[in-house]
Design a protein around this nucleic acid. Structure first.
Length: 810
RNA sequence: GCCGAAGUGGCGGAACUGGCAGACGCGCACGGUUCAGGACCGUGUGGAUAACACCGUGUGGGUUCGAAUCCCACCUUCGGCACCA
């Protein structure tokens, strides 16, 4: 028997696959035929593969090889999300150019991926840091700009003093920069945004059609978009013509409003204050104090406010109520002002307590009611609400809003939590925003034929500020309108822009006159199976859905949803904890591949747990996978060397083989339960070992086992396939078929469990289609069962053919 | 606090629409092989018991001839979001 020399045969097969080009994407799909697009979230090229990657790729490649052998025309590409901060940090630390550093990391990463034997079409590889890619970011940006989907606005933004860059709200974690961990500050700057909110409703409604997405992800996106129906109500400022519009979801509590609160960021805050009796200096000080508070302090800070000395009139009852600025009211949501109903909102209640403001109960619940100790936030019947008394909350919301609408002092409206996407980054290693600023003409887009605006070379990385602001060659430009000298925009784009359409670029990776071809995207998209980590449940997936809609509206593609089916894999843990350098519990995939081979690594990571669950890495378990492959190898050797006796397998063996095919196929195709699929193949191996080498039909069983393990352990399976005398590529071999009739043949006679009062007392062999009387008689005659029935009255007899017999006795 | 997911042997995990709980693997034990260790092969392995009866899927109830699976209440763990009006 030959040794299981994985180092040798894994290399051999990777070379053959590459030379033969069997994994290249079929370029021409016959008219109308749809391809099958299989995609893994492309990695940031850190240069080092970790176990999470291995799991991601093992899942993907298994599906690729499985589907290919089932006749699908597969597009299965790989590329690199290569822009972003780490390259810049490396430049600062090691005096190496981001482009060079990234190139090295990409090739290092690719080398490790190659050693896993993944069946990508490498000819379609993309790298988002290359001008040939980011050029199209700029082109798309311009199309968005022309349509009003890209725009500039001023806003209070989060600023990382360490990275000296802007952070989106969602990139601030615990008040800290999600990348470097420095405490975030607040600054006001003019920034570029994408108008994702235009699609808020469409993005929300589209979720209903995503049947192949995990429920949890749909729910998270729904919450993130955060659509809520409510009303805007205008409160007139006493003795003036000005109004303060407030947003509320609880118009039914309007009679209980005893004060208004305005966000300190509200643009009219100071103006309104001047109308009143407050000290402008104190108001200004309050605004400055709260607006510039760092995010981390803001989250923990106590409720605080300052009266503006102004009263606003409740349009429904004419009551004048005081107006405050309050630090817990957000400008980004609603109108930046709220009506406070302390009896029915806990935050308002606390505020009212602190500043001695009145509390009026207007909602009385069926069970509970406002008792003065805390707010009652539930629904109920209205009280103290004039003509609306006794109405239910839901009904009252409609009636009160309708009344306001008639009076012209309110209207029903819909609000979203979703905010426009801030894409500006004050960084070097990103796509330059293709805009120049002219003294005379203002901002103007760079003409298409001047794209790409390339990142300059004459830059220094000091760790302070944005290097682009100091690059003369980059800064100086000409105004596209008047030709006068102009200054180039130094903001670059968020890297989420790159990943929002990369799956389209894979379809036409070399296209030079457009980012991708419309007809080709229609043929390949939506992605048939997308695989990636749950951590991208909101941002990346939502941005991609937005991009696809925007590109659709621009007429660039016919599709609206990018990803048809989504599989979110769980994390790879070690001893129950996330692998991390600080915990010192990392497992290096390269070491595993070197010691046991790629096949073992892939096989074990799929065997240890179903893909959507977290997986606790175990070196011991890994050895089990290795052992299995070697036992199969030994069986194949033995069978290959044996004189085959020829002949057909016996019924039992034939049934076992067919059933294994059926179950493995179902486990992979319908459920992605690779762990049970592999277990079935292990069972087949154990079963085959009961027969001597060369026994009739044993060879067929061995061939089936090798064929079925192919997608999981492609190198070893290919080698064993050859040992069995096959000359073609296993990956070009059709997936094994099973015959249901053969399986049924083995299920003619079954062991049926017999229970008495629900407790197992014996099993009886009988034909699958045995009649009730015959079955019950056989069961009653069973020795053990008889004992338990002795002297008892049988009250009921249950017979489920092939499943169970149960006697109920008194 | 809200939303989402999950609780099954010493461990990872199986169990189709309610029908023999613990497939498969790890670990462990015993035996074989080996100078020895490792590797490999074989057998066994939920708990308790001398054996049977018995007890067992987070806890407590319920529905059912029959519940890991369905219903109600609760507990725990993990993940996400959080002054969103």
């Amino acid at each position: 028997m030959r040794d299981y020399n994985f180092k040798e045969f894994e290399k051999k097969w990777r070379k053959r696959w590459e030379e033969s080009g069997i994994f290249r994407t079929p370029t021409r799909l016959p008219g109308g035929e749809r391809g099958y697009y299989l995609l893994e979230m492309f990695p940031y090229p850190s240069g080092k593969l970790h176990m999470g990657h291995v799991r991601n790729y093992a899942i993907g490649d298994t599906l690729a090889r499985f589907n290919r052998r089932n006749g699908k025309k597969i597009l299965y590409p790989m590329g690199y999300d290569a822009m972003g901060l780490p390259a810049e940090n490396a430049a600062i630390k090691n005096k190496v150019k981001p482009a060079d550093w990234t190139k090295r990391c990409v090739s290092e990463m690719k080398k490790q991926q190659l050693s896993l034997g993944l069946s990508y079409d490498w000819e379609r590889m993309i790298n988002t840091s290359e001008p040939s890619y980011y050029r199209w970011n700029q082109w798309i940006f311009k199309r968005f700009y022309e349509k009003g989907l890209a725009y500039r606005k001023k806003g209070a933004i989060n600023w990382c003093p360490s990275c000296r860059t802007t952070l989106a709200n969602e990139q601030v974690e615990d008040g800290k920069c999600w990348r470097c961990g420095a405490a975030a500050e607040v600054q006001v700057k003019k920034q570029w945004y994408f108008r994702i909110t235009k699609y808020a409703d469409d993005l929300l409604e589209g979720l209903d059609g995503l049947k192949g997405w995990p429920r949890a992800v749909i729910q998270q996106q729904r919450n993130w978009i955060g659509r809520s129906r409510g009303a805007v109500i205008d409160f007139k400022i006493e003795n003036t013509d000005r109004t303060i519009p407030v947003f509320t979801t609880r118009a039914d509590t309007l009679f209980g409003a005893t004060f208004l609160l305005i966000s300190p960021e509200h643009p009219e805050a100071e103006e309104i204050a001047r109308l009143g009796t407050s000290d402008p200096g104190e108001v200004k000080a309050f605004i400055n104090r709260t607006v510039t508070t760092s995010v981390s302090e803001r989250e923990t800070r106590v409720k605080e406010g300052i009266p503006l000395g102004v009263k606003a009139v409740n349009p429904v009852n004419g009551r004048a109520v005081p107006v405050y600025l309050a630090n817990f009211v957000f400008m980004e949501y609603g109108t930046g002002a709220i009506m406070s109903v302390p009896a029915h909102d806990q935050r308002d209640f606390e505020f009212a307590r602190k500043y001695g403001l009145p509390v009026i109960e207007v909602i009385r619940g069926e069970q509970e009611k406002f008792d003065g100790s805390c707010a009652y936030e539930g629904e109920g019947k209205l009280v103290n609400s004039g003509e609306f008394d006794a109405l239910d909350s839901a009904e009252a919301r409609k009636k009160i809003t309708g009344y306001l609408q008639e009076q012209g002092s309110g209207r029903s409206t819909v609000e979203y939590k979703l905010r426009d996407w801030l894409i500006s980054r004050q960084r070097y290693w990103g796509t330059p925003i293709p805009v120049v600023y002219c003294e005379k003409c203002g901002p103007g887009a760079v003409p298409d034929d001047e794209l790409p605006v390339k990142l300059p070379d004459d830059v220094e990385f000091t760790g302070r500020g944005n290097p682009l602001e100091r690059s003369e060659s980059f800064l100086s430009a000409r105004c596209p309108e008047c030709g006068a000298p102009a200054r180039r925009e130094t903001d670059t784009m968020d890297t989420f822009v790159d990943s929002s359409w990369y799956f389209m670029r894979y379809i036409n990776p070399d296209s030079e006159d457009k980012p991708f071809d419309r007809e080709d995207t229609d043929r390949w998209l939506p992605v048939d199976q997308y695989i990636g980590g749950i951590e991208h449940a909101v941002l990346h997936l939502l941005y991609s859905r937005f991009f696809t809609r925007a590109l659709n509206e621009l007429g660039l593609t016919g599709v609206k949803e990018p990803f048809g089916n989504l599989l979110c894999q769980g994390m790879v843990l070690k001893d129950g904890a996330k692998m991390s350098k600080s915990l010192g519990n990392t497992v290096d995939p390269q070491k595993i591949i070197d010691d046991y081979g790629a096949d073992t690594a892939r096989l074990f990571i799929l065997f240890a747990s179903p893909p959507e669950k977290d997986l606790d890495w175990s070196d011991e378990g890994l050895k089990g996978g290795y052992r299995f492959l070697r036992r199969l190898w030994a069986l194949v050797s033995e069978e290959a060397e044996a004189e085959s006796a020829g002949g057909d397998p016996d019924t039992e063996l034939d049934g076992f083989i067919n059933r294994t095919i059926m179950e493995v196929t179902g486990d992979i195709r319908d459920e992605f339960h690779f762990n049970t699929a592999i277990a079935r193949i292990m069972e087949l191996l154990n079963f085959l070992k009961k027969y001597p080498a060369g026994a009739p039909g044993r060879r067929k069983g061995v061939e089936t086992a090798v064929s079925l393990i192919g997608p999981f352990a492609p190198h070893a399976a290919s080698e064993m396939w050859q040992m069995l005398g096959q000359s073609g590529f296993l990956d070009e071999e059709p997936w094994p078929r099973y015959d249901k009739k053969v399986i049924m043949e083995t299920e003619k006679v079954l062991e049926v469990p017999v229970t008495v009062n629900g407790r197992l007392r014996g099993t009886v062999e009988m034909p699958a289609d045995a009649g009730k009387e015959a079955a019950l008689k056989a069961a009653r005659d069973d020795g053990k069962v008889k004992e338990f029935l002795e002297g008892k009255e049988i009250r009921k007899e249950i017979y489920v053919p092939g499943k169970i017999i149960n006697f109920v006795v008194g």
